[in-house]
């Protein structure tokens, strides 16, 4: 029973830690499937988190925070689009730029507006996306095994966490069952064909990066208003890059993206859990190794040792209409 409880707690924190990864990775999925590489997920999520924290603190409403986060993230996504779609600039360079702009401006503006060393003021519980109890969570908690699974693991997460997991089937549906999704995937593989069919490559890609902006805004809001009570400087702490790793690990497919995020979330939760305690067989594992593991796994995957990750064919290549 003790073991089961520990296990459920571990899974519970796995879910919590994988939600921001999931938002960011799904965000990247839209953009990259349309042929626009985006290493600026980190920056957009960070800017979103700042906007969410600032707006929620000023307006006193979690929804205002979410709206601000999504607006700011979409703006940065459009900057990325403007550079890489309209002006056919280097997508990697543009992504790097957005990461720096977000990292610097969140601190500068945060300090200038709130004067708390780059933080936003603490947001009260009522202005955050707090825990949502699923129906019958209390009543069922007495049932052995299934009870704790339901009431501790499935119930009691933030509303945004449920949104994140519902977005997985939704994204699958959009990408593989709608006209928009078909065209989005096509424009990432062969933009010339899409262009020949009379569909605007630029407009499709712009819509894709807007989707990315919306989702990174959600991810940032989750960090600032569900996991924490406000924005703290550099609060994404590389999660945007882990999400990128998850996206590659999942070979740019929605359902595997969820499992990859859960895996990386689990590694994170596990390394927090085992800090200082030796494991059977291997002895003490350094925390730093656990922290580096998602990155190591991604490198190994990319090198083709576990299957092969083939990016969308037109990814990273600006589309030049034939002259």
């Amino acid at each position: 029973m003790e073991l089961l409880n520990t296990f459920i707690q571990l899974l519970d924190s796995t879910v919590r830690l994988s939600v921001p990864l999931l938002f960011a990775a799904l965000a990247g999925l839209y953009s990259e499937r349309s042929g626009v590489f985006d290493i600026g997920l980190e920056g957009k999520m960070l800017a979103g988190a700042f906007a969410a924290g600032a707006a929620a603190a000023v307006a006193g409403s979690a929804w205002a925070g979410l709206a601000a986060a999504v607006t700011v993230s979409i703006f940065l996504a459009l900057v990325h689009g403007f550079a890489s779609i309209t002006h056919r600039g280097n997508q990697i360079v543009s992504g790097v730029a957005i990461n720096f702009i977000a990292a610097g401006s969140t601190i500068i503006l945060g300090q200038a507006w709130f004067r708390q060393g780059g933080r936003t003021p603490l947001v009260g519980a009522e202005d955050r996306f707090g825990a949502v109890e699923l129906p019958f969570a209390d009543a069922l908690s007495g049932v052995p095994i299934l009870g704790p699974l339901y009431s501790d693991l499935l119930s009691g997460h933030s509303l945004l966490a449920y949104v994140a997991f519902l977005l997985v089937p939704f994204t699958w549906w959009v990408l593989f069952r709608t006209r928009f999704g078909l065209r989005l995937r096509a424009v990432g593989e062969n933009p010339a064909a899409v262009d020949t069919a009379g569909i605007s490559v630029a407009w499709l890609r712009y819509r894709a990066v807007i989707c990315t902006g919306v989702l990174t805004g959600f991810g940032g809001t989750y960090l600032a208003l569900a996991q924490n009570a406000g924005f703290v400087k550099d609060m994404t702490a590389g999660r945007g890059f882990i999400a990128l790793a998850a996206l590659i690990f999942a070979k740019w497919r929605p359902v595997p993206v969820m499992f990859a995020c859960l895996l990386f979330g689990f590694l994170d939760a596990f390394s927090i859990r085992i800090q200082g305690t030796p494991l059977p067989l291997v002895g003490q594992v350094p925390v730093q190794f656990m922290q580096a593991l998602p990155y190591i796994l991604t490198v190994v995957l990319l090198a083709g040792f576990i299957g092969r990750a083939v990016p969308p064919r037109a990814g990273g290549v600006p589309y030049v209409k034939e002259r």
Binding site: V79, G89, N90, S94, V96
Partner: peptide
């Protein structure tokens, strides 16, 4: 990086 790199053109 944005203006001299991505938006150089």
């Amino acid at each position: 990086i944005l203006f001299a790199g991505a938006l150089e053109h």
